[in-house]
Write a protein that binds this DNA or RNA. Sequence first.
DNA 1: AAATTACGTCAACAGTACTGACATAATCAC
DNA 2: GTGATTATGTCAGTACTGTTGACGTAATTT
Lengths: 175, 175
Amino acid sequence: MTSPAAGKPIRTAITDEDDIDFAIIELFFFAYRDFTSDPDQILADYGFGRAHHRVLHFVNRRPGLTVAELLDVLKITKQSLARVLKQLIDTDHIVQLQGPRDRRQRELYPTAKGRALALALARPQSRRIRAALEDSGTTDRASIERFLEAMVNPELRAQIDIVPAQTSGKKNGDH
Amino acid sequence: MTSPAAGKPIRTAITDEDDIDFAIIELFFFAYRDFTSDPDQILADYGFGRAHHRVLHFVNRRPGLTVAELLDVLKITKQSLARVLKQLIDTDHIVQLQGPRDRRQRELYPTAKGRALALALARPQSRRIRAALEDSGTTDRASIERFLEAMVNPELRAQIDIVPAQTSGKKNGDH
DNA sequence: AAATTACGTCAACAGTACTGACATAATCAC
DNA sequence: GTGATTATGTCAGTACTGTTGACGTAATTT
């Protein structure tokens, strides 16, 4: 059962005593696991995966963003993006337009089909969030947003605020 | 640039107007992206990936859990687990003991080495959480925990509470 | 004119997940 | 006890998503 040189088993659970916040680390894992599982059934119907979902989401959120910008947001490589982007273009969920200023750039836009799919994918996730806010008795929605935003690397927070506005109470409307 | 039958580009950003909570959907993506990137450098030094991290985490959190229980927590298949678990056992981070009641079962325990690695991996994540709580001015830590827990599928919330306790309230030594 | 940039693509590979099948040992039900 | 079920391990094959490095083309910048 145990190999000869194996260390001895530790039978006590690791806890927060080591000044490590295992509680939230674990909650984050469970929450994200179930959060991302929501759209999986829908995606499977299209033969798509989570990578397609992410691309579709950001193209809908920031229509006209370039390939380079998308790579920067997703933090993946060109080759990883190429495959899923090509599929989304071939299936007419996304179209590319030549950049107006710089004709080397490809601005990415959703089609009506792509927008509809993005909405369908977001719907169950949004329902989950809404229910969680209610079930947890959260009165101050902005506090959740502030926490999540603070979890993001400071130098990357700029990516978040690129979006239109109307996030929470006011949020963008004033800074 | 656009194929003949391509749909027309939609140039307006998708927003919360559709009653979809894109703000938190997106924040969750960014937060988790950076949260999971913390341990990557350490893992790379060992030739491990995120799957190893998750296994190591839960074996340290619930020493003596069986393979079946671990599969249920991680929501992956036996074959997916087999490879990473084998590596962790071969490198003496985890040991298996025959189940006392049911000898078919394999109880999983961390070794001192495995515990040390789990702590090292959790440290930067915990730092990020602590900083986020402070930076966001969160006074009610429990409210964040309640929200995250409410994001988990109700039937799976039992998995969370298996752990020792001292989740919220005052934690342990009330620091 | 030369260097750089934005994008696309090719080849090769790694990590993590899946399904389905099969084997073994132990336990449970009758 | 015999048979069914359970817990685990393993084999084979596959899919998706990610990586690096190299190369080509068109457009822009210097």
